[in-house]
Amino acid sequence: MALNTPQITPTKKITVRAIGEELPRGDYQRCPQCDMLFSLPEINSHQSAYCPRCQAKIRDGRDWSLTRLAAMAFTMLLLMPFAWGEPLLHIWLLGIRIDANVMQGIWQMTKQGDAITGSMVFFCVIGAPLILVTSIAYLWFGNRLGMNLRPVLLMLERLKEWVMLDIYLVGIGVASIKVQDYAHIQAGVGLFSFVALVILTTVTLSHLNVEELWERFYPQRPATRRDEKLRVCLGCHFTGYPDQRGRCPRCHIPLRLRRRHSLQKCWAALLASIVLLLPANLLPISIIYLNGGRQEDTILSGIMSLASSNIAVAGIVFIASILVPFTKVIVMFTLLLSIHFKCQQGLRTRILLLRMVTWIGRWSMLDLFVISLTMSLINRDQILAFTMGPAAFYFGAAVILTILAVEWLDSRLLWDAHESGNARFDD
């Protein structure tokens, strides 16, 4: 018995066209964080690309023209004298008006014999932002004059995390709450300039795509075929072959399989920071003279006294001054041990922890910024005066060393310790 099946006739004509040209192939790229070699397709503007294995951002879609970056830099340069030299806060102490600005706080630190601690604050609040705007201006002028731009481009990517104007702005709020127990506070004209400078700096850093600047100024022929001998440069993120001198053909720094002496430098910085954190938390970090009496505060006791007036601000200072430094030390110690013992479990967790400490590390400088600003506000000789204690130097040095330890660690070593050939990683 035959089955009668109805015929289905399409209502619209289906047209099949042959592909007349070869589909576009992607360029081969190595991930600078996990060293995976993959094919990167062509990316349009405002599109980002991520590593298929570790999800690290390979290409950032946010990109401004150099002219727009230069305009932002010149605007920031105009704001800087007002943000640093004009009063941020006014207080009335014992019937006398006192003005506080950024430069005055750094000068008070240096004047009291601790120039190293003052230079830490100076670099993060004044030096690094000033280098940022002058570097962008150098790129703008240098591109037109045919100057060598490689050193500036190499420095810009590392400079971003040292620009800490946003953290200093939080420190202004913390210092205001600490001082309000002794005097009446009012915002100064410099505060508005400083807030504007923070906003412009944040926007500029978020749109400063150094890798795209490398592509514009020093374009290189990408690798179009897969080759395990391809290496990625950690300076400019170019994937290719080393030249005859073993250097990256684009930025001219040595092109090595792994960062040289990464573990040794990381261990040295980490152990030194552990040693410095002990006096930083045991010795007094601030000293207040009130009517001839002397009151010393460690980091913890200062947080407890701050909690009596504002528990939320005390929580912020606790996280930045105690929780973050010790968390960074514990995480980095764990990561280094996992590399030495070739741990194969929990790779995803370790990668996330490394990215976390990379982002939060700079916030530990908050305590030094609060001390710097408070020193310029309260300084009335023996009637009422505020000065920093010996722990300030140890704390600042420990924070900087932990930042350097994270920067010096080559994250690809975590993958080397893991089993080879993993296309995915999980716990």
Rank of each mutant, 00 (worst) to 15 (best):
A2R: 11
L3K: 14
P6G: 12
Q7W: 09
T15Q: 13
R17V: 13
A18T: 12
I19A: 11
P32W: 14
F38P: 13
L40S: 12
L40K: 13
N44V: 13
S45V: 14
Q47G: 10
A49T: 05
P52K: 08
R53C: 14
R53F: 10
Q55N: 09
K57N: 09
D63A: 15
W64I: 15
A70V: 14
A70H: 14
A71L: 07
F74N: 05
T75Q: 08
G85K: 13
L88R: 01
H90S: 08
L93V: 03
G95Q: 06
I96G: 03
R97F: 05
I98K: 03
I98M: 04
D99P: 04
D99F: 08
A100Q: 06
M103D: 03
Q104V: 12
T110Q: 15
K111N: 09
Q112V: 05
S119I: 02
F123G: 01
C124S: 05
C124P: 06
L130W: 05
L132R: 01
A137C: 03
W140P: 04
N143W: 13
N143S: 15
N143K: 14
V152S: 03
E157A: 13
R158D: 15
K160E: 08
K160L: 06
E161D: 11
W162R: 02
M164W: 06
L165S: 10
L165Q: 14
I167C: 07
G171A: 14
I172S: 12
G173I: 08
S176N: 05
S176D: 04
Y182T: 13
A196G: 11
I199G: 08
L200S: 11
L200V: 13
T201F: 10
L205P: 05
H207M: 15
H207E: 11
E211T: 10
E211Y: 09
E212W: 12
W214R: 02
W214E: 01
R216H: 05
Y218L: 06
R225P: 05
L230Q: 09
T239N: 06
Y241G: 09
R245N: 04
R247K: 03
R250L: 04
P254R: 15
P254T: 02
H261A: 04
S262M: 03
Q264D: 03
Q264M: 02
Q264P: 02
C266T: 08
A268T: 04
L271A: 06
I274P: 02
A280T: 10
L282D: 04
L283H: 04
I285S: 01
Y289D: 01
L290S: 03
L290I: 12
G293L: 06
R294C: 03
E296P: 09
I299A: 08
G302P: 00
I303F: 06
L306A: 01
S309L: 01
I311H: 12
A312N: 12
V313H: 01
I316S: 12
A320L: 15
A320N: 02
S321R: 01
F326V: 12
K328R: 00
M332T: 06
F333V: 11
T334E: 12
L335R: 01
L335V: 12
L336T: 09
L337D: 03
K342I: 09
T349C: 13
L354C: 12
T358S: 08
S364W: 02
M365A: 04
M365H: 04
L366Q: 12
D367E: 01
I371A: 01
I371Y: 01
M375G: 15
L377E: 03
I378N: 00
R380Y: 06
D381A: 13
Q382Y: 12
Q382E: 02
I383W: 15
I383M: 06
A385M: 04
F386L: 04
G389T: 00
A391V: 02
A398V: 08
V399I: 04
I403C: 07
I403V: 12
A405V: 04
L414T: 15
R424P: 15
